[in-house]
Structure formats: structure tokens, C-alpha cells
């Protein structure tokens, strides 16, 4: 475990806590894409199947449980919670996320480390996570008013994989030059998708104006 990875995990955890805070404190999920949350739940379930079979460390197992339960809780809130579900922008959150699931699955069948159930699920979760933010970014462009917490949620979510890229560079040079093409390429794509969001977020912060993504 190196500092970059720990920073990445904490940033990721923080993004989830910010979203939970927003939903719990404001009892509203306006501006939040339920489709992206559903995709993240699939990502975590598909990736953390080894939770019960391979014990890496207490930290690793605890974080897996936290990510799976928090993403499930957020989806549950947005679907079932009587107050929260009413604030969901159903007609704005229209991205056909099934396409993302299908494409990631096909890609995982072709590009994986081993053609085994676990490795195909793992590769699927890596590819799906790279594009899972798309429904959320589309929703942000549509909904004019991006509230601060939702903006911060997306910011931390984008930053976490950037820290992971630094972690991969660090590990490449310190742990023998093993190449991990799948997470590297997917991680770069994932972080690149946030590039314009980071840019407009920075502008809104610099000019001290509300964050607005151009349509």
C-alpha cells in the first residue's frame, strides 16, 4: 500500500460520504443520476466477488464492504425512500446505461487476464467503472443548477482514479515492471472523461460562480 493508493481510496470513500450526506441531509437526490449509482453497485459487486474467498487485508475487506453497502444504500434511497425518490429527475436521467453494461461485458470477454469467471467479472467491473460516470455527467449538463455537494461528489470521484494512476506508476517502478494494461487503459479513459468537468469546476471555483456545464 503506498500513499497514492491510500489517498485514492480515501478520496473515493469521501466522494461516497459526500453523496450520502447530500441525500441524507437534504432528503433530496436532485441532480444525482440513479443510473450511475446502479452502475457503481454492479461495478462493486462484480469486482469484490473475492470478498469471501481471498483475504488480502482487513483494510481491503472493510473497504469492499463499505463500497458495496454504501452504493446499495444510495440506490435503495433513490428507488424506495419515500421522500428521496420523489426528487429523482427521472425524465432528465435518460442515458441508456444498459449499453454501457453490454459493451463492458463484451470487452471483458475479449480482453481479460484469464478466461475465468472471476477474471472476466473483474475486467468487466474495470471497464464498466471507466464509463459509469457518463449518465451523471450528461445529467449535470442538463440540470442547470448543480448543487455544491453534487459537484464535490463528482470532483472527488474523478480525482480518486487519478491518484490510482499515480499509484500504478509508483508500483511499476518499485515492484518490478509488471504491466497491468487493463486497469491502466481503463483508468486513463475514466479520468479523461472528467477532464471537461474538472475544467469547468475549476473555472467556477476561480470566478466564484455557480458550476454550470455547457450543454
Amino acid at each position: 500500500m503506498n500513499a497514492f493508493r491510500f489517498l485514492g481510496d480515501m478520496t473515493h470513500l469521501f466522494s461516497v460520504l459526500v453523496l450520502l450526506l447530500k441525500i441524507y441531509a437534504t432528503k433530496s437526490c436532485s441532480g444525482v443520476s440513479r443510473k450511475t449509482q446502479e452502475l457503481y453497485m454492479v461495478v462493486f459487486v462484480a469486482r469484490y466477488m473475492d470478498l469471501f474467498t481471498d483475504y488480502i487485508s482487513l483494510y481491503n475487506s472493510v473497504m469492499k464492504v463499505v463500497f458495496i453497502t454504501s452504493s446499495a444504500a444510495i440506490v435503495w434511497c433513490m428507488r424506495r425512500h419515500p421522500q428521496v425518490r420523489r426528487t429523482y429527475d427521472r425524465d432528465q436521467d435518460t442515458f441508456r446505461h444498459v449499453v454501457l453494461v453490454a459493451a463492458s461485458f463484451v470487452l471483458a470477454l475479449i480482453f481479460n487476464e484469464r478466461f475465468t469467471f472471476r477474471e472476466i467479472c473483474w475486467a468487466f467491473s474495470i471497464y464498466l467503472e471507466a464509463v459509469a460516470i457518463l449518465p451523471q455527467l450528461v445529467l449535470l449538463q442538463r440540470s442547470r443548477n448543480v448543487d455544491n455537494l453534487t459537484g464535490q461528489y463528482v470532483l472527488f470521484l474523478g480525482a480518486y482514479r487519478a491518484f490510482y494512476i499515480l499509484n500504478w506508476i509508483y508500483r511499476y517502478f518499485t515492484e518490478g515492471h509488471t504491466s497491468r494494461w487493463i486497469p491502466w487503459i481503463a483508468g486513463l479513459v475514466q479520468t479523461a472523461l472528467y477532464a471537461d468537468f474538472f475544467y469547468y469546476y475549476f473555472l467556477s471555483w476561480k470566478n466564484n460562480v455557480k458550476l454550470e456545464l455547457p450543454a
Binding site: 481510496d9 473515493h12 469486482r47 488480502i56 473497504m63
Partner: peptide
């Protein structure tokens, strides 16, 4: 065969 590198990251 080489040990399948466990995915030790989140």
C-alpha cells in the same frame, strides 16, 4: 503456472 496475481487493489 504463475500464481494468478490477486487483485490487491480496490
Amino acid at each position: 503456472i504463475d500464481k494468478v496475481r490477486a487483485h490487491d487493489e480496490l
